[in-house]
């Protein structure tokens, strides 16, 4: 299985990358140029000829996109930071264990060594692991283009299956996560699709004093926050009662591995498990 030919560039600065992404003589992006981050999603699609971009702009050598740091109570993760770097980061494990847990659940070691957080959120696979946790963590993405930067919540960023709020010419620059002041417990519970390793359903729970945040992946056309579950938890409902509503009104995905009905059912099970575990981890 062989990809179609394309032009490749490997800019050495963010400015150059944005220039190349903008492409054509009028400087407008035309959609036939794609950003290459880790390539863990894009390259298999190109090999199957389900994707055939004319140009790839590789961010691998752009300096300043690979970092994990804490600044004023906010965790900043550069877009090119790999899943392995997140999974194994002492800072993330200590201050934001849910994200490390999500990263450790992605694919396999080879994928985690190469795949990046920016690439994952930009790909917006509805069964990816990161989004559930990022939603529960109320994370944001910072997007950059020649016009400047903007920051938006991951929730607003994820629009639909493989569709994000990224405008032509825009690149995900970093992901930011506000860190807890104290006390919240978190957990990610995932039912694994045995062949692909993606989530049939994945539920991330973050529960603190007086608040609950629940992110869901795999169930619907995009990862989303289950506000109905959050509200019940915040109103004092127990895990099972709150989890039971997670699929209400959701147009659930259906495939060979799980019908819509079954997905809705296991979403309630995994939600309850994530919630219970998160509560047990409150401190």
């Amino acid at each position: 299985m062989i990809p179609q030919n394309f032009e490749y560039s490997s800019p050495r600065s963010l400015e150059a990358a944005l220039d190349q992404l903008a492409g054509g003589p009028d400087g407008s992006a035309d959609g036939s140029t794609k950003i290459l981050a880790g390539g863990m999603s894009l390259i298999p699609l190109m090999k199957l000829r389900l994707a055939a971009p004319e140009r790839l702009v590789d961010l691998r050598r752009v300096p300043g996109l690979n970092y994990i740091r804490e600044e004023s109570g906010v965790l900043h993760i550069g877009a090119m930071t790999t899943h392995y770097e997140v999974e194994s980061s002492a800072l993330v494990r200590a201050k934001c264990p849910l994200l490390a847990e999500a990263a450790a659940n992605i694919g396999d070691v080879q994928v985690r060594n190469v795949g990046t957080i920016g690439g994952s959120v930009a790909h917006a696979d509805p069964a990816a692991d990161y989004p559930a946790s990022l939603l529960a963590l109320e994370a944001s993405v910072t997007l950059v283009s020649k016009a400047g930067e903007r920051t938006m919540s991951v929730e607003d960023f994820l629009v639909d299956t493989m569709t994000t709020a990224l405008e032509p010419g825009e690149i995900v620059r970093e992901v930011t996560v506000p860190l807890e002041k104290s006390g919240a417990g978190t957990a990610y519970a995932k039912m694994v699709q045995p062949a692909s390793g993606f989530a049939i359903v994945g539920v991330a729970a973050r529960i603190g004093e007086g608040f609950a945040r629940i992110g869901v992946t795999g169930l619907a056309s995009k990862a989303y926050r289950a506000r109905n579950v959050e509200a019940l938890l915040e109103g004092g409902a127990d895990a099972a009662t709150a989890a039971a509503v997670i699929a209400e009104g959701v147009d659930a995905n259906s495939d060979l591995h799980a019908s819509a009905d079954y997905r809705r059912h296991v979403a309630t099970v995994y939600a309850a498990r994530a919630i219970r575990q998160a509560i047990s981890r409150k401190y």
Binding site: P44, V109, Q110, V114, G197
Partner: peptide, 21 residues
């Protein structure tokens, strides 16, 4: 072709990757 099987695994700068992807 789908970077599942791992038969193509090599290490790049000390990290194993699937060289078909």
């Amino acid at each position: 072709e789908t970077s599942i099987c791992g038969a193509c695994t090599v290490a790049i700068d000390g990290k194993v990757v699937k060289s078909c992807a």
